[in-house]
Computed example of a mutant assay.
Amino acid sequence: MSVSIDIAGLRPERVAVLPSPLAELGMALHALSEPGHHPGLQGWVTGVTARLDSHLADRMCEADFLWRTTFSDLFMPFAGLPGTSAVPGATLAEDLDLLDKLTDEQFVDAALEFTCALPYDVQGGKALTDPALRGRALGLAAARGPQQMRFTERLLADPPRIRAWLRQFLEDCDEAFFADTWSRLRHQLAADTRHKTDLLRHKGLAEALTLVSPAVVLDEAAGRITIDKLRQGHSVIRDSSLLLVPTSLGWPHLMVLHRHGWQPVLHYPVGSPGLTAPPSVDQLTMRMTALSHPVRMQLCRNLARSTYTTSELVQIHGMTAPEISRHLSVLKKAGLITTRRRGRYVLHQLDVTAVARLGSDFLEALLR
């Protein structure tokens, strides 16, 4: 399985490497919400959390579905703007100004990407104007609990108000912790940007992509970039550019923005910290046996990013409820997933710490 980008006819000058303050803030929020995804950031997460204002921490929970799974395309708004040369802002304020330029339809569709499973890399309807999609979005939000249901209702009823709320929240995060973090990280990102840009100029795209990640392969004859991920997707560059955006907080995530009508973006980590030791042999045997089935690997990919109900997994994978339940039972017996009840819903989630003990290669494949 993979995500591919058709780059036939892409001119070298239309490939750019640039950091994005807003994308890095999105990754920071993700790491704070899912520290298990980022064992190398435990010290930073602990420090930020300890001094975080309780009111800001509460607000962080109101819309954490925008960054808990990975993070929403809203954190790379430059990719959604018309034209062939849209690039990230040099400052967070400039990136937020670009976010303000997205249409309400773009904003809402991107905000509902993970939890409401709206069309992504194909042309689809709009939740603001399509009653069926609107009802489906609200129904799926209900499975996530009353807080997300309320936020989704407000989002669909009054997008400008939610957009203003989000901008103010991100500005408050900048004041509280991100400005200091960005002042330290931007030098590493600038150095990586210069290095990749120099490679592009003197040795070509293939050489630069080799250093982005071993999971990224360029087939120059076919005019296609293939990113090895446990998902399917496709994007075609016609009148847009290809952007490479580095992150210092992102490992092990390698993300590909391939939303229909948006500029393709590769968001790649700079550096890769180590992980913890493996489990006992008996545990390892049981867990590897549980993961030997391709469907269970796909379930792990979903559950690594967020909690899901059995019915949601049924819809995603096109299987029956008993089939999904049997696979979940095997994963739970192996100690790879946890479950908790929220009202009438039972939510399943991957134990990322347990999976990390199986090895960095497998965890990186799941989170890529």
Rank of each mutant, 00 (worst) to 15 (best):
R344G: 13
L350Q: 12
N302D: 08
V352K: 14
C300A: 12
M255C: 09
V270L: 09
A334V: 10
M297Q: 15
T339P: 05
H327V: 05
V236Q: 10
S248F: 01
I316F: 01
S325Q: 14
G318F: 08
I324H: 09
T320Q: 14
L291Q: 15
V330E: 13
T309I: 03
G335V: 09
R287K: 10
R342M: 14
L347Q: 11
L291Y: 11
D282N: 12
Q263G: 00
V346I: 14
T338F: 02
T289D: 10
P279R: 06
S329P: 10
S248R: 07
Y308C: 07
V256H: 01
R231T: 10
Q232T: 12
A304W: 05
T307S: 12
Q315F: 01
N302E: 08
L254G: 02
V295S: 14
W262Q: 12
A321C: 12
V270F: 05
G274C: 00
M319P: 02
D351K: 13
V281P: 06
R357D: 07
C300S: 07
L331Q: 08
P278W: 12
R326Y: 13
Q283A: 13
Q232P: 03
G261F: 01
A277N: 08
P322L: 10
D361M: 07
H267R: 00
L363A: 14
S306G: 14
P269G: 02
M297F: 06
P264W: 02
M319Q: 15
V256C: 12
S360E: 11
V295P: 00
Y308T: 01
Q298C: 04
L299I: 04
R296Y: 11
L254Y: 02
A334H: 15
L328M: 07
R340C: 10
P269V: 03
H317W: 07
P246H: 00
Q349V: 05
V245S: 05
V314G: 06
L347C: 09
M255L: 03
R296H: 04
C300N: 11
L336I: 05
L331A: 01
Q263N: 09
V295T: 15
S235N: 02
R296C: 11
A290C: 12
A354I: 06
E323S: 12
V355I: 14
S241D: 03
N302C: 06
T247F: 00
R357F: 04
L275S: 05
H327D: 12
G250D: 13
D361Y: 07
S292H: 15
T289P: 04
H348M: 11
L257T: 03
L242Y: 04
T338W: 12
V346C: 07
V352M: 08
K333Y: 12
Y308R: 09
R341V: 06
S325H: 08
V330R: 11
H234G: 14
Y268C: 03
L254N: 00
S235E: 11
T310Y: 02
S235C: 12
